[in-house]
Simulated scan of single mutants.
Amino acid sequence: MLKRWAAMLLCLITVVSFSACGSNNDNKADNNGESKIKVSVTFDAMKEFVSAVGKDKVEISTIIPAGTEPHDFEPKAQDLAGLSTASVFVYSGLGMEAWTEEAIKAADNAKLIAVEASKGADAIKNTDPEEIEEHGQYDPHIWLSLKGAELQVKNIKDALVNEDPSNKDYYEKNCNDFISQLEKLYDEYNEKFQSANKKSFVAGHAAFGYLCRDFGLEQNSVEDTFAEGEPSAQQLTELVEYCRENKVTTIFAEEMASPDVSKTLANEVGAKVETIYTIESSENDMTYLDRMTDNLSKIYDSLK
């Protein structure tokens, strides 16, 4: 591991040296001639949150390429070159991006403000040994909770204020406006979910634990591992029995994962397959709020 990261550091220095030759400015100027804060983020949800708070005062680059499963991503030197010139680096945390600590060291950027957006979260602990081995001690999918998103947005706002205190009021207003939208959406669906007869739904991957905690729901997952692998015959039998007993009419499949197993289960129990967003890559030009509204609407409809 040490040799791997030492090699990456040497490559990163080389990449940065060449990229620096073409520019004397660390930040890109906006239309008013003011420099923008260069922010590097790990995946799409973090980009959405930074954009909501920073708006036209930030220039955002995303490290994990669109269509790439973040759990499986292993960065190369060129993926991390931007960290050496960025002012702020935002990652979700809770083990979602296991490579960030070493990447920050390799960037060797003394001015870089690294933000673990989930800092201070009441994290859900994984209990399944295979899940712990695959994804770590905690469930990392906190951005799929509206309450979790509030926390992450606040942490991002604090980092932008730290980097650019002269625009503190601007960032705080944008943060508060976005949180107001999150809370409005939460209030709308909390009332709906409280009145729903059923409280459980079935998804391809158990990525919605924090969302379930928000609304008093329960998720059951089809796949043991995200985007790959299949449940055993016994597990599939148990899921079929569960779906029949609970009159499940919808099986959710994530946009980043193969829906094959979800379709198999749906065919067994006479259910339909619906796409649900994990907001790890950009999809259909939809915002975070668009996709969360779509998710909540589909989950609520499945409980009727």
Rank of each mutant, 00 (worst) to 15 (best):
D224K: 13
Y300S: 11
L296T: 07
T42V: 02
S19H: 12
K304Q: 08
K147M: 08
N295C: 10
G136T: 06
A203D: 10
T62P: 03
E59M: 09
G204H: 00
V115G: 05
N167A: 06
L160Y: 05
G82N: 15
V202C: 02
Q137Y: 11
E188M: 11
I179E: 06
F215N: 09
W5D: 04
N32A: 12
G22K: 15
L239Y: 03
I13C: 11
S262P: 00
V90P: 05
L265H: 00
D79T: 05
A45R: 00
Y138S: 01
E48I: 00
Y170D: 08
K28M: 09
D260R: 13
P259T: 00
E133T: 13
T62G: 04
Q234Y: 04
V16C: 07
L80K: 04
N220T: 11
A203S: 15
A86T: 09
Q78I: 10
E254I: 00
G22N: 13
K119E: 10
S23V: 11
D128W: 06
I60H: 02
E188C: 06
I63T: 09
I279K: 01
I279C: 02
G270K: 04
K168R: 12
N31W: 03
V240D: 01
A110P: 01
Q219W: 10
E188G: 09
V16N: 11
S221I: 04
M8C: 10
A206G: 13
V41M: 01
L265C: 03
A86K: 07
H135M: 08
T225W: 01
A207W: 07
L265P: 00
Y91S: 11
D301E: 15
K192A: 14
K147N: 13
N126K: 11
C212H: 05
E74H: 07
A81G: 11
N246S: 10
G148D: 02
K173D: 05
D224G: 14
V16Y: 07
D294E: 13
H135C: 01
P231S: 13
T249L: 04
E150R: 11
F49Y: 02
V115A: 05
P259S: 12
F73W: 06
A103N: 07
L236N: 08
P259H: 02
Q181T: 06
L160K: 06
K28Y: 02
Q137M: 14
A86I: 09
W99S: 03
K304C: 00
A86D: 14
S166Q: 15
E280V: 12
A206L: 15
R4I: 05
V202A: 01
A117S: 15
N267F: 01
F208G: 12
Q152F: 00
A266D: 01
I142S: 04
D260L: 10
D301H: 12
L185K: 14
I113F: 05
Y170C: 06
L12Y: 08
T68V: 15
D44C: 02
A110M: 05
A107Q: 11
S51R: 09
V16S: 12
S51L: 08
D224L: 13
E283I: 14
Q235C: 03
E130K: 15
Q235F: 02
V16G: 04
D139E: 06
S195N: 15
G229H: 02
F18V: 15
I60F: 03
N220P: 01
I279Y: 01
Y300L: 15
L296F: 10
M292H: 04
S23N: 13
D301M: 09
E34M: 12
P231G: 14
Y288A: 05
M286E: 13
A121E: 03
